[in-house]
Design a binder for these strands. Sequence first.
DNA 1: AATGAATGAGATTTCATTCAT
DNA 2: GATGAATGAAATCTCATTCAT
Lengths: 193, 193, 193, 193
Amino acid sequence: MTSKKKEKYAQILDAAQKVIAENGYHGSQVSRIAKEAGVADGTIYLYFKNKEDILISLFQDRLGDLVDMINASIRETRTADEAIRKICEIHFTQLEQNVDMAYVTQIELRQSSLDLRKAIGLAVKPYIELIEHILEKGISEQTFRPDLDVKLTRLLLFGAMDEVVTSWLISGRKYSLSGQVDKTVDFFLRGLK
Amino acid sequence: MTSKKKEKYAQILDAAQKVIAENGYHGSQVSRIAKEAGVADGTIYLYFKNKEDILISLFQDRLGDLVDMINASIRETRTADEAIRKICEIHFTQLEQNVDMAYVTQIELRQSSLDLRKAIGLAVKPYIELIEHILEKGISEQTFRPDLDVKLTRLLLFGAMDEVVTSWLISGRKYSLSGQVDKTVDFFLRGLK
Amino acid sequence: MTSKKKEKYAQILDAAQKVIAENGYHGSQVSRIAKEAGVADGTIYLYFKNKEDILISLFQDRLGDLVDMINASIRETRTADEAIRKICEIHFTQLEQNVDMAYVTQIELRQSSLDLRKAIGLAVKPYIELIEHILEKGISEQTFRPDLDVKLTRLLLFGAMDEVVTSWLISGRKYSLSGQVDKTVDFFLRGLK
Amino acid sequence: MTSKKKEKYAQILDAAQKVIAENGYHGSQVSRIAKEAGVADGTIYLYFKNKEDILISLFQDRLGDLVDMINASIRETRTADEAIRKICEIHFTQLEQNVDMAYVTQIELRQSSLDLRKAIGLAVKPYIELIEHILEKGISEQTFRPDLDVKLTRLLLFGAMDEVVTSWLISGRKYSLSGQVDKTVDFFLRGLK
DNA sequence: AATGAATGAGATTTCATTCAT
DNA sequence: GATGAATGAAATCTCATTCAT
C-alpha cells in the first residue's frame, strides 16, 4: 500500500468507528460510513472486501495498537509483577481515554455475526498470548507460583479485565476506570503467588 | 398462567434453545422455533410479546435455574470459601452438562441487538449480586480481606469464569470444564485473602 | 396446491408477463410485478423461489400450453403432413393472438442469464421431441423420406419457425404471421419428402 | 484509423471474445477485458464509445468475416444450388473451427440487452440479404420454384442453420457440425425446388 | 385459543464510465 | 495517448409481526 492508500484506509476505519459509536452496530450502514469518510460508497470496496472486512480490520487495528503499546511498555519493566501491572494499566487507561473505541470494541462489535466474532477472537489471541508469556516469565523467575496453569490463568486475567471494562461502559462511566487498576492488579498478583 | 399455559411456554423456550443451538442465532427464525415447538407462528405471540421476549425469557429462565441451584447449594455451606467453590463448581458443571444451553447463552445470544444484550445484562445481575453477597459474608467473617472492593471483585470473578466457559466452548470442548474448578477457585481464594 | 393457491400463482405469472411486455426484461423488477399482481413483494416469494423462478415458470407455463394445444390438435389429424401443418399453424396463430406472450418468450426472456436460458432450453425440449415424434411417424408411414435424420430435422423445423416469429415481432408485426403458415409448411413438406 | 490504432482496436476485440468465452457474458466486465488486452480501463473508451459498442463491434467484425468469406466463395460457384451449399458449408465449418467465436456469438452475446440485440440484428441483416440474393438468383435461373417467398425463405434457412449451430454447442459439441451440412442442404434444396 | 397467509421495510455490493494527472 | 482511482445508482430477498378465520 502506498502512503496515500494507507491514509484513505485509516480514514475509512476512523469513520467506521465514529459511525458505530454514534449509531450502534445495526445503525451503521456502509453508505453512512462512506459519507462520514467523505468517499463514495463504492470506494469502500476498493479498500475492503466487504462490510465485515471493515469491522474486522477496525477491531484488529485498534487491538493491535493496544498490544503494540503494551509490548513497548513491558520492555521497560524488570519484573513480571510490573509487567502485569503495566498490562492492566494500559488496558484500562487506553480504553478510558478512547471511549469511542472502547464502546465499539467492547459493546457494538460483539453483537456481530459468528464469523465476525470468530475473526475478532483471532485478533484477541495475540493479546492472550502476551499475557501467557508474562505468566511464564513470572514462573521461571520464581515470582509466580510454579503450579500455575498458564493456559487457564491467562483467561482468568483477560476475562476479569474485559468484564470490568464492559461493566464500566454499561454503567455509564460513572467512575474512573483507571482507578480500578490497583485493586485489580492486587487481586491478580495475590492469585498468581 | 394456568399449568397448560406454562407447559406450552416451556415448550417454546425448549424449542428456541434447540433451534438456536442447531442453527445459530441468525438462523433462528420465529417460524422455525414455532415449527420445532409444534405450534403455529402466530401462537408464539400469544405467549411472548415478540422475538426478543423469547430470547430474554430463555436466558432468564436458564440463568435463573443456575442461580436457584447455586443458592440452594450455598445454604449447605458453612464458610465463604466453600461458597465460592460451590459457585464455580456449579457454574462449570452445569454448563458442561448442558452444552446446548451453554452454547446458546455464552455464544449465540451474545451476538444479539443491544436492547437484548441489555436485558441479558439485567438477567445476569442477580448472579453478580449473589457473588457480591458471598464476598461480603467472607469479609464480615474475616475470611476475606477487609479492603476488598466487592463491587469490583464480583466482576473480576464473574468475568474470569465467563471467559473460561466461552473459551472452553470455542476451543471445541477438548478438555474438561469442571476440571478447571480447583485451579480457578485456588486463584480466586488467594486473590480474596 | 389448493385452488386458491393456484389462482394467485397464475395471477403473478400473468402480472409478470404484462410487466415484462410493457417494461422489458431489465425494467421488470420484482416489486413492479408484485404491484401489478396486487400482492406484496414478499408474497411473491411464497409462490416462487426467486425472480428467476418466476421467469422460468412463466416460460414453462406458456410453452406448456402451446404444446398441450398442439398435442390435442394433432390427435385429430390422420397424416403426418396434416400434423406438421397443425404444428406450424398453432405455433404461428397462437403467438399472433398473444402478442404479449410472443414478445416475452421470443424476445425478452432470451436476454436472460445463462442459467435461465438453460432452463428455458429444457422447457423447449418437449416441443422439439413432439416434432421428432411426428417426423418418425411420417417416416414409418412412408410419407416422409426414410433417410431423414430426425434429430437434425427437428432442429431445422423448430429453428425455422422460431426465426420467422422473432423476425415478425422485430419488424413490428407489419404483416400477418399466420399468413406465413402455408408457405412455411410447403417448404417443410418438400424438404421432408 | 492509423494502423497502430487498428491494432489496438483488434487487440481489444480479441480480448473481449476470449474473456466472454471464458467467463460468460455476465462475467465479462470492462476492466477484465482491459486487463486481458493489456491496456488500462480508460483506454477502452478511446477506442469504443461504451461497453455495448465493444460487443456490437465484436459481433459485426466476426460476422463480417463470415459474410466476406461466403461472398468470396460464392463468386466461384456456377449454380444457386452450389451457392446454397457453400453458404451452409462455410457457416458450419467456420463456427466449428472457431468454437470461442461460435460460443460468444451464438450463446453469450444473445443474453444481452435489447438495444444490443437490435444492433446484432442489424449486423445479421447483410447475411440474410446475401441468402435472399442467392434465392433470387436461383429463381431467375429457374433452379428454384418461382413461387418462393424469398423474404420468408431466407428466414427459414437462416433460422434453421442458426438453431443447428446453437444446439450443437449446447449439446457439448459431441458430434461433427460440418457433418450436418449435406443433410441440411439436402433439406433446403428440396424445399426450394 | 390457534392458525398461517400475507405483509413491506430496508441495505449490500457491483461495475460502467469519468477525468485529473 | 494512456492511466486507474473514484464514482454512485439501483434491486433482490428475508423475516418479524398481524389479523381474518
